[in-house]
Each structure stands twice: as structure tokens, then as C-alpha cells.
Design a protein around this nucleic acid. Structure first.
Length: 796
RNA sequence: GCCGAAGUGGCGGAACUGGUAGACGCGCCGGACUCAAAAUCCGGUGGGGGAAACCUCGUGUGGGUUCGAGUCCCACCUUCGGCACCA
């Protein structure tokens, strides 16, 4: 008998799958009815700034298991793959290596593809693309133009992180403790005109439409936090000297009588006017200039509060008290209205500020949470008072209920080279002009030096920048900023539906057929940014009538982190085993099984080689026993013995775990149990059935060995075989172990026929000598019978 | 501070709707095969007591509901994750 040799059989079956294009799936014919059996299985696409690591093996194997399971269960499965190949990490790696980012990225893609094929993942390779392909980003640009023309994309001045030493804009991730990650210089804030998508316009849609999603609660909670909807009121405060009203957002209208001063954000539009008319205008201007140079992220909590008095007063609408107006950087311009009423007694930050500048503190809520010193509202609870005060203000035209969000508009300009060019021309006459559709793609130009230095690198490509205005024909200049890579990944799942389309990003009918993604898998670290943006994109496209769906990802599975030696694996950690090394050492099937066997895939896990060794033992056992069974003469029907029942039970368990429970470790244990039983009884009439079933059930996890053994059992193309179905009548044993409890404690276990009536169960329970000993002749007050489980005798 | 998830043997983890706690695997112990080793196979393996039958304790802590709680309820502790000068 030959031994299990993973390398040989894996190469064999990978060649067969490739030659037969086993996992390609055709698109529907035009006009085809919607297929209820379609199933779009997708995992987040890899970022090719490096090679694959064990974390990828987990995600893509998990997707693979589902794809095989759903396909064999009768679904038409779409499972594509691509590469998120634009972006900063690739560009930084390129700068470091002195190479072109394209060369680095394409070399990595080659290596990643090879690794993916060695792991035997069942991917439809005919749909593969990279986001840096002009044929892809052409359509990224096209979609941008649609959004721009519909008013979803706009330009406004916004602060960026600026490193004065490197003369460049830094992404937030490149700023550590207020300093440039590379050179250590203190980061400054600079105001730049930049591109934004109006994600805030979708805040309520993003929130409300989450209800339809089949996502883990923790991920939904993350998105809710990120959107940060809070309900409160907008209240107008009068400034008599300036003859104007300043609106304020508050969730604590009940504390209005405790407001003792008023604060504006340094960027508030009224600040200039106040400075102009104020005796200490110079001081105000100096303060605003000073704090304005600090990035908003650096105005951190915990540091001493700073501020400046303007000399003006606002009037409290409830009691006409005069409140001094201050300017302080603890108030943020981009939340609420950029102005607050300060209630030092009941707000920690206002309290700190009041102590620092010796401002009055007025208590308006007592220990019982009731209002005091609040005129006719005194004695009310928090909820009552909020409602009553806002109503009172409303009747005088001084306030109304309002909602505020933490979510910001998505700033997607990047002052970098390696990204999708923004198809816009600036013209002195016409302003901001779209590049006409027929001129797409706007190709990323080749430039000498793409290192960042003060101006965006694309500005160096002068011939490229100078271009005739598409509208008036006079000389204009191209947009030199590029798009955030999250734009690329906000619609890639649509392109997979129709990746070769050269007339549109996708055919609407085809996208509507495959979408939404039925099963999305990826790291929870992308649960907010990427998955909020993708949801926003799909909703916006839906509103533009470019798509028939409003959500991209119906079901989401957030996989855990894989650690090795305690370190989180994101890049290649020294000493960590790579997927290629694992495949060479153990084989693809053992690697795939062991990563999913460690534990629940949605929790963090530690990868250790000892796990693979256990899996290898299991696969060798499987191999031996199946080959042994295959060589025996084919006997009679499986019958209804213990092994046949165990086999049906295993089918039911594995199917339920994969389909309903989304549990990926326990099916492996279930098949191991079955194989253990089979090893004990290879001569059982049900042995061939058990062997075939074990092979069939393990196929999604270990497709190579499964295919090889399937062939040896005299069949072919297991990957096309229907998923096994359990016979419900075979799931129950004809006897069961009756648990007998006395006062809830297990005292005996009796093997009894399954069809025994209840009174007989009780009779047998009482007859047990062990039970007798514990009954002690006492009177039985209550008898509980759980059919097919237990009898509990309660004595006094 | 607000929101969310999780605490079970030496280890990773099972136990789905309240009903035999510890499936499966790792490790460890003992045995078989072997000149020996590897591989493989068989048996054992939560703590305490007992020669044994068996008894007893046991799922982060303290209460509660229930005939019965790892599972439900209340309070607390710890760990991890998200948000956070967000008014």
C-alpha cells in the first residue's frame, strides 16, 4: 500500500483543476431570471506590498470551505480574487528599494498568485484583476465622475498633517505622537483644498439599513460607534453687540441654566469678526494662529486646556444671563456647530476649563438627578427637562431638536504618486471640469522621481499636467492628487461580476444578478473604514440608478488574528513560517486543515507546528483506512448499524456547522470521530459508506487528498458531487443512555430502548440499585422525565 | 467615560434551544511492534479521598431563578476590541 504523499497528489489535482477550469462560473445570459441559488463568496482582497502570511491562509481557506460547501449544496458560486495594488505601503517600499512601485507590486502579485494556487484555493481565475490595472482604474475614474457630477464629490479646504522636514503630507498612520514617523520632526497642520465624498449625507442610511445585515454584533457596534449619531438640540444664543445669533448643539439641554460661559472653536467663521471688533484682537489672532498650526489629532485630551477671552458676551435664552465668549481648541469645528454652551458643573471638560480660567460654576442637578435652580423646570428628571426646555425654546424660536454625527465626510485626496489619478482639469475660465468619459483612463504618468517633496509628485509631470480644458479648449491643468486606495476597494466586488467589460464598470444586469456578496470574510480591522465606504458607495450608486442593491455585504464573517510566537502577523515576522514553507514542509491540505482546526475562526489564535502534526496523523489514518476499505470487495448495503448511524450523524453535524452555525473547527473534529470509528470497524457493512462520506465531508477543507481517495474509491470529480444528505431516520440510535438523577445529581446511567414509554423509564430508574441507595427509602415528591435523555427523582 | 466580546483541564478548544461538563486534537504517562529508533497501534489522563465499588468538589467571583445552570437573571472582578476634549 502506498503512503499518503501530499506533494504528489496536490500537484496532480491542481493541474487537473487548472486544465478543466474547474472553478470558473459563467455569467447569466441576458434576460436570465434571478437565480435564487446564486452565492457570491468573497474574502477581502490582499494588498500586494509583500507576500502572503498565515493570516491570509486562514481567511482564504475559510472562504474556500464555504465555496466548496455551497457549490456542492447546489449553489452557483462566484468566488473571484484580485489585488488591492495601489497605495502608500507599496509606494514606501518602492522608495526604500529604489524601484518603481509597479515593479514591486507586480512581482508580489506573481508570488501571491503562485502561493494561492499551491494552496489549492478554488478561485475563478478568469475574473482576476489588480486595482492598478488601467482597465480597472479607468472605471474607478468613471464612477468618480458620476459621483462628482451628482454632487457626491466636492472640494473644500481641510487640514492635513504636514512634515516640515520631509516637505510632505503625512497620512494619519504616519504620525506617531505628533511626530513624523520617518524623521521625528513635529507635524504641523496645513490647510489644503481637498476632495471629499459626502458620506455624512448617508449617515442615517448607513445606520438604519444595518438592520438588514447578517453581521456579528461586535462589527455592527463598531459601525454604530463610528457613525456616532447623537440626538440633542440646537439652541440659539444671542450676541447683542454683534446683532447675531450663534447656534449651539447640545445633548444636555437640561443643564442650560448651568451654562456660565460660551466657547467657539478656533476655526469658527465668526472668529475673524470677533477679533476685528475686540480690543484684544491681536491676542485672539495670535491664539488662533498658534493652535491652528497644531493638527486636530494633537489637541489631545489630558493636556492643559488653553483659550482666550473675546470680550463679547452671549445671552442665555432661558434666563438672559450674560455669558463670556471664549475661544478654545477643546471645541472642534467639525462636530456640532463648532460652538458650545459650557456647563462646568456637569461637563468634565467645561469644568476643567472653568477651573483653569476661574470662571463661575453653577450646579443645576442634585444628587437625585433632579433639576435645581432652573426656574419652572426645577424638580424635573433629565429626560423630562430636555423635552420641556427644548419645547419651551422652540415656542420662542430659540431652539429645536437636532441630530449630530461623529462621522465625517470622506477625504479621499492623496498627495502621493501611487494611486488612481483623479480625472479632473482645472481651468481659469471654467473652474473644475470633468475629463470626458471617452478620454478615460487618465493614465498615471511615468515620472523621474516619485518621492514626496512639498508638492504632489504628479505635478512634476509637466507635459501631462498641461492640458486643454475639455470645455473651453484653453490651457488648463490636471488634478495632481490621486485617490485614496479605499476608493478602489469600495467597488471591486462589482467589477468581479463583469471584469472584462470595456464599455462600463460592469453590466447592471449582471451585477444585480450576483450582488450582494452573500458571504464576505475579512479582518475586523476593516470593519469601519473600508466597510463603511463600500456601503456608502453602493448606496450612492443605487441612488444614481447605477445598481439595484443598497448593501454590498449581506453576511460578514470577521476572522480573528493569527499570531505566531505571540506576535501579530501582518508583515513577515522574523522566524515565522510562510505559507510557502508550510506547503513545502507539510503540504497544502495539512496546512489548510490545521489553520481552521486551531479554534473558532472569529477569534484570535496562536499558530503552532504541533497542530499540523496532529492533522498529519489524522490524514495518514484517513488515507490508510480508506485505501484499505477500497481494496475490500464491495459488500452489501450499509445497513442500520452503529457505523451507518454515526456516518449519518456526522453528515448532519458538518452540514449544520458549515451552513447555519458558521463554525469551521468543529466539522473537522466530527470527521475525526467518524474516522476513528471506521478504523475500529473496517469490516463493517457500512465501512465503504463511512469511508466515502468521510472523504466527501473533508473535501472542502482538504480537496486534494479527498479527490485522490475519491478516485481510489472508484468515483470521479468529487468537487462536482452533491453534498451528502443525512437520512433523518438514521440520526437516532435504537437505544440510548438514560441518565438517572436524584435531586438533580447523576446517580446512574442505563442503556435502554429508544421507544420505551415514560412510565417504564421511571420504573427502570427507580429499580436501579445505585438510585435505590440514594433514595434511602425517602418519598419521591416529584418525577421529571425528559424523553430520550433523563429521569430526575426529587425526594424530600 | 460610552459601546461591544470573552473568561471551561497542563495547552488549543467542545458542550447549538437550561438536561451525562471536558467531544476532537496537542502534550504527558503506561504498554505493543522493533536489535534500536522513527512511524504506527492499544490503554490511561480535571482536583481531592479510597485497595476497589464508589464518594466528593469543580466552568472568573458572589448572589438568585429552577427538579436541574458552563448555558437564564442581578451585582462584581479580569482580559481583549471599538469610539472618545464628539458638547
Amino acid at each position: 500500500m502506498d503512503r499518503y504523499d501530499p506533494q504528489t497528489i496536490e500537484a496532480k489535482w491542481q493541474r487537473i483543476w487548472e486544465e478543466s477550469r474547474a472553478f470558473e462560473v459563467p455569467n447569466p445570459e441576458p434576460g436570465a431570471p434571478r437565480n435564487e441559488r446564486k452565492n457570491y463568496v468573497l474574502e477581502m482582497l490582499p494588498y500586494p506590498s509583500g507576500r502572503l502570511h498565515i493570516g491570509h491562509v486562514l481567511v482564504y481557506t475559510l472562504g474556500d470551505v464555504l465555496a466548496h460547501f455551497y457549490r456542492r449544496s447546489g449553489s452557483e458560486v462566484l468566488r473571484p480574487m484580485g489585488y488591492d495594488s495601489f497605495g502608500l505601503p507599496a509606494e514606501n517600499a518602492a522608495i526604500k528599494a529604489g524601484e518603481h512601485p509597479r515593479d514591486i507590486v507586480e512581482r508580489n502579485i506573481e508570488a501571491i498568485r503562485r502561493t494561492m494556487k499551491r494552496l489549492g484555493w478554488a478561485i475563478d481565475w478568469s475574473r482576476e484583476f489588480s486595482t492598478h490595472d488601467p482597465e480597472y482604474y479607468r472605471w474607478t475614474q468613471w464612477l468618480f465622475l458620476k459621483l462628482f457630477e451628482a454632487g457626491h464629490a466636492y472640494r473644500k479646504a481641510a487640514l492635513v498633517n504636514w512634515c516640515p522636514n520631509d516637505q510632505t503630507v503625512l497620512a494619519n498612520e504616519q504620525v506617531k505622537d505628533g511626530r513624523c514617523e520617518r524623521c521625528g520632526f513635529e507635524v504641523e497642520a496645513r490647510k489644503l483644498d481637498q476632495w471629499f465624498f459626502r458620506t455624512t449625507a448617508y449617515a442615517d442610511h448607513l445606520l438604519d439599513e444595518m438592520k438588514e445585515l447578517d453581521w456579528p454584533e461586535r462589527v455592527l457596534a463598531m459601525q454604530r460607534n463610528w457613525i456616532g449619531r447623537s440626538e440633542g438640540a440646537e439652541i440659539l444664543f444671542r450676541v447683542d453687540e454683534l446683532d447675531l445669533d450663534i447656534p449651539v448643539f447640545t445633548t444636555r439641554a437640561d443643564t442650560l441654566f448651568g451654562a456660565t460661559f460660551f466657547v467657539l472653536a478656533p476655526e469658527h467663521p465668526l472668529v475673524d469678526r470677533l477679533a476685528e471688533r475686540s480690543p484684544n484682537g491681536d491676542e485672539i489672532r495670535a491664539y488662533v494662529r498658534k493652535v491652528g498650526a497644531r493638527p486636530v489629532e494633537q489637541r489631545a485630551a489630558g493636556t492643559d486646556k488653553t483659550g482666550v477671552f473675546t470680550g463679547f458676551f452671549a445671552t442665555n435664552p432661558v434666563d438672559d444671563a450674560k455669558m463670556p465668549i471664549w475661544i478654545a481648541d477643546y471645541v472642534l469645528m467639525d462636530y456640532g456647530t463648532g460652538a458650545i454652551m459650557a456647563v462646568p458643573a456637569h461637563d468634565e471638560r467645561d469644568g476643567e476649563f472653568a477651573k483653569r480660567f476661574d470662571l463661575p460654576i453653577k450646579l443645576v442637578i442634585d444628587e437625585d438627578g433632579k433639576l435645581v435652580e432652573s426656574a419652572q423646570f426645577s424638580g424635573m428628571s433629565h429626560e423630562e427637562a430636555v423635552r420641556a426646555i427644548v419645547e419651551w425654546l422652540g415656542s420662542r424660536g430659540r431652539g429645536r431638536t437636532a441630530v449630530s454625527y461623529r462621522l465625517r465626510d470622506w477625504g479621499f485626496s492623496r498627495q502621493r504618486y501611487w494611486g488612481c489619478p483623479i480625472p479632473i482639469v482645472y481651468c481659469d475660465e471654467c473652474g473644475i471640469v470633468s475629463v470626458p468619459e471617452e478620454d478615460l483612463p487618465v493614465l498615471l504618468p511615468e515620472i523621474e522621481d516619485y518621492k514626496p517633496k512639498g508638492i504632489p509628485p504628479l505635478a512634476q509631470a509637466e507635459d501631462w499636467v498641461r492640458v486643454a480644458c475639455p470645455r473651453c479648449g484653453k490651457e488648463g491643468s490636471r488634478e495632481v492628487e490621486t485617490m485614496d486606495t479605499f476608493v478602489d476597494s469600495s467597488w471591486y466586488f462589482l467589477r468581479y461580476c463583469d471584469p472584462l467589460n470595456d464599455r462600463a464598470p460592469y453590466d447592471r444586469e449582471i451585477a444585480d444578478y450576483w450582488m450582494p456578496v452573500d458571504h464576505y470574510t475579512g479582518g475586523v480591522d476593516h470593519a469601519t473604514v473600508h466597510m463603511i465606504y463600500a456601503r456608502y458607495f453602493v448606496k450612492a450608486l443605487n441612488d444614481l440608478d447605477l445598481l439595484g442593491h443598497r448593501e454590498p455585504f449581506q453576511r460578514f464573517f470577521g476572522n480573528g488574528w493569527v499570531t505566531q510566537g505571540g506576535a501579530k502577523i501582518s508583515k513577515r515576522v522574523g522566524g515565522a513560517a510562510t505559507p510557502d514553507e508550510l506547503v513545502e514542509t507539510y503540504g497544502a491540505d495539512p496546512t489548510r486543515l490545521s489553520i481552521l482546526f486551531i479554534g473558532p475562526a472569529d477569534q484570535d489564535m496562536e499558530w503552532t507546528p504541533s497542530g499540523v502534526e496532529g492533522i498529519q496523523r489524522f490524514l495518514r489514518r484517513l488515507w490508510r483506512v480508506v485505501v484499505e476499505v477500497a481494496e475490500l470487495p464491495r459488500g452489501s448495503a450499509p445497513g442500520a448499524g452503529a457505523l451507518a448511524r454515526k456516518t449519518h450523524q456526522t453528515i448532519a453535524r458538518v452540514s449544520d456547522d458549515l451552513g447555519r452555525r458558521q463554525q469551521f473547527n468543529t466539522p473537522i473534529a466530527a470527521v475525526m470521530e467518524l474516522v476513528n470509528e471506521l478504523v475500529k470497524a473496517p469490516d463493517d457493512p457500512a465501512a465503504p459508506f463511512a469511508a466515502e462520506t468521510a472523504v466527501s465531508l473533508i473535501q472542502p477543507y482538504a480537496p486534494h487528498i479527498a479527490e485522490e481517495l475519491w478516485e481510489r474509491l472508484g468515483h470521479e470529480r468529487l468537487w462536482l458531487q452533491p453534498w451528502p444528505e443525512a437520512d433523518p431516520t438514521m440520526l437516532e440510535e435504537d437505544t440510548f443512555q438514560l441518565v438517572v438523577q436524584v435531586n438533580g445529581k447523576v446517580r446512574d446511567r442505563l442503556e435502554v430502548p429508544a421507544d420505551l414509554p415514560e412510565d417504564e423509564l421511571v420504573a427502570r430508574a427507580k429499580a436501579s440499585p445505585k438510585v435505590q441507595a440514594h433514595l434511602n427509602g425517602g418519598e419521591i415528591r416529584q418525577t421529571i422525565v425528559v424523553p430520550r435523555k433523563l429521569v430526575n427523582l426529587v425526594i424530600g
